[in-house]
């Protein structure tokens, strides 16, 4: 079963400096019907104005993945990590026992558009950790590029970030007519979030910002739709 979550049905807040769409309940958007899907708790589709951002704030017991689509994002945290990330980079942080971090758009001119994904960890109170990995754009073109996977799953060998949950996350960009198929093991679940453009998921159209929760499906066929295709994030969840 594939259940589509249309982009405009998501929670929305425009604070001027931040224009954000919440797939699941977050901040002042609360809908008991959309509290997350399996261990996937948050997909925020954020656009932050130049020079603006989120000041120092705390997190605990959460796997936090940031994926920049356009622009750049400056990250600084209590572990001493201080980085500016752009597109085609995975940033994943295990908040564990507690971290404090800030995220700003360091550009004086360009907005930043990024997805922030929260996955609930399988274990609490892990030591906080930070992973950041960059890849070439062609690594996600026409195929799945792994962004994150659990410890012990060979994620490091795939150049992916490690998370404390039985969940795998990929990004892919499919041009018009390009397609790929991914199997979903029996009893497992999936989620697709379209980052930009248009894709077909098992023949169903998904536009920019649309999502789809997937259960009791054995295979997913994704294809680039329209003149330019699209980019999406795929989750495989327990």
């Amino acid at each position: 079963m594939i259940t589509i979550r249309k982009a405009n049905d998501r929670g929305h807040a425009d604070h001027g400096w931040l224009n954000t769409w919440h797939t699941f309940s977050f901040a002042s958007y609360f809908d008991p019907a959309h509290m997350g899907f399996r261990s996937l708790r948050v997909i925020n589709d954020d656009r932050v104005a130049p020079g603006k951002g989120f000041g120092a704030h705390g997190h605990r017991d959460m796997e936090i993945i940031s994926y920049v689509l356009e622009g750049s994002l400056a990250h600084k945290d209590s572990m001493g990590e201080s980085h500016i990330i752009g597109p085609n980079t995975i940033q994943a942080m295990s908040a564990g026992t507690g971290i404090v971090h800030s995220e700003f758009n360091p550009s004086p001119k360009e907005p930043v558009h990024f997805l922030q994904i929260w996955i609930e960890p399988a274990v609490e109170d892990v030591k906080p950790s930070y992973h950041q990995l960059s890849f070439e754009p062609q690594e996600k073109r026409g195929k799945l590029r792994m962004l994150a996977a659990p410890y012990g799953d060979g994620a490091e060998a795939n150049g992916a970030a490690l998370i404390h949950q039985d969940a795998r996350v990929w990004a892919s960009e499919l041009g018009a007519g390009e397609s790929l198929t991914q199997t979903i093991a029996p009893g497992r679940f999936g989620y697709v979030q379209v980052a930009r453009g248009n894709v077909l998921l098992n023949g169903q159209k998904l536009g920019e910002g649309d999502g789809a929760s997937i259960s009791a499906e054995s295979a997913l066929t994704l294809a680039g739709e329209g003149s330019d295709g699209g980019e999406f994030i795929l989750f495989d969840l327990a």
Partner: peptide
């Protein structure tokens, strides 16, 4: 201040700096 903030988060607090 950041160290204190981490301590408060470790104690499951919402924080503002």
């Amino acid at each position: 201040a950041l160290a204190a903030a981490v301590g408060a988060v470790q104690a499951k607090a919402n924080i503002r700096l």
